[in-house]
């Protein structure tokens, strides 16, 4: 197999898959930070929740994870609305830092509940190994990778359509730009907040399903992704959903490509440390340009 194909099969494609997952998570984090003005620490665990909801659907119906995806997204969106109603809304008019504490509490409550309901064993959507599809003799793409990357593109197009073509989507961007002006303009903030939770949670659920599909399901999977997702949102600029998409892709690709033997034959970075790339990028951004590449907002 040629070097290029090795690069594509083992570095570029996994990078795109990881980037898709980060991007989907980061859009929600960025929107919530932009509109509700706080870092949502339960976002990773919402991803876990989505993944486990899909697991139940897959287990009950024996369906492909793709078919379970919409149900997991809807289920997670509904639960997110409930969480907002009972645990975040009481603080909407208060200091947002209390919301960070509340969301941190929610993160661990969600994870605890997932462990009570689904147990702590490692799970997966399918049994057995699926063969990759082979193109041009040697370009091997796992079927699930095609689904993951393809669905991410579709979901991003939907997000784009929502944010630029629908009244509520435009209002979300308006509130993110200036909450004060949005209120003075007569935009009902509470409604926009609900829409934000539904969109953010649905995308988080999708990201969670994709992680579970690509690897396996663990109750800590979402929490462990929180750092790269925040890093993606910061890289793209807080409150900028398109920045979050790009940021997620950049960090996903950077993590996978950092282990390619660019110089000599050894991996440039030991694979065990590739998730540290996200942290490094984030630290650089915080020092050099906290507003992000697309000039979001610094709070």
């Amino acid at each position: 197999m040629g070097d290029l194909l090795i690069f594509v099969n083992f570095y570029l494609l996994p990078g795109l898959v990881l980037g898709s997952i980060y991007a989907l998570g980061a859009i929600g984090v960025s929107l919530v930070f932009g509109i509700l003005r706080f870092a949502h620490f339960a976002h990773g665990d919402m991803m876990t929740l989505g993944a486990y909801l899909a697991l139940t659907v897959v287990a009950v119906t024996g369906a492909n994870p793709m078919l379970a995806l919409p149900l997991a997204m809807i289920g997670t969106a509904i639960i997110a609305l409930g969480i907002d109603r009972w645990f975040y809304k009481p603080f909407h008019d208060k200091s947002t830092i209390v919301l960070v504490i509340a969301s941190f509490g929610i993160a661990l409550m969600l994870r605890s509940l997932i462990r009570v309901i689904w147990g702590v064993e490692i799970e997966s959507y399918s049994v057995g190994i699926s063969r990759p599809l082979v193109f041009f003799d040697s370009l091997r793409i796992a079927e699930r990778h095609i689904w993951i990357i393809g669905s991410t593109v579709v979901l991003m197009l939907i997000v784009h359509w929502l944010l630029t073509r629908t009244r509520t989507g435009k209002a979300m961007r308006a509130v993110s730009d200036s909450p004060e002006l949005a209120r003075l303009t007569g935009i009902p903030t509470e409604r926009v907040i609900k829409a934000t939770w539904m969109l953010g949670a649905a995308l988080a659920a999708a990201a969670g399903v994709f992680v579970g599909w690509d690897t396996q399901l663990q109750t800590t999977m979402g929490w462990n992704l929180l750092l790269p997702i925040f890093a993606s949102a910061i890289l793209g600029g807080i409150g900028r959903p398109y920045g979050a998409m790009a940021g997620g892709m950049v960090i996903g690709l950077a993590e996978e490509l950092s282990t390619y033997p660019w110089i000599g034959t050894e991996p440039l970075l030991s694979p065990g440390y590739k998730t540290g790339i996200a942290f490094a990028i984030m630290v650089v951004m915080l020092i050099w340009r906290p507003a992000g590449l697309l000039r979001g907002r610094v709070y």
């Binding site: 009244r167 435009k170 961007r173 308006a174 730009d177 200036s178 004060e180 003075l184 303009t185």
Partner: peptide, 24 residues
């Protein structure tokens, strides 16, 4: 009401700004 400062949504287009005025 037109506030003195921060009276437009900077990341929205001109037309989207106008549309927000008629959100209701």
């Amino acid at each position: 009401f037109v506030p003195q400062t921060e009276n437009v949504f900077p990341n929205l287009t001109v037309q989207e700004n106008l549309e927000m005025g008629a959100y209701i």
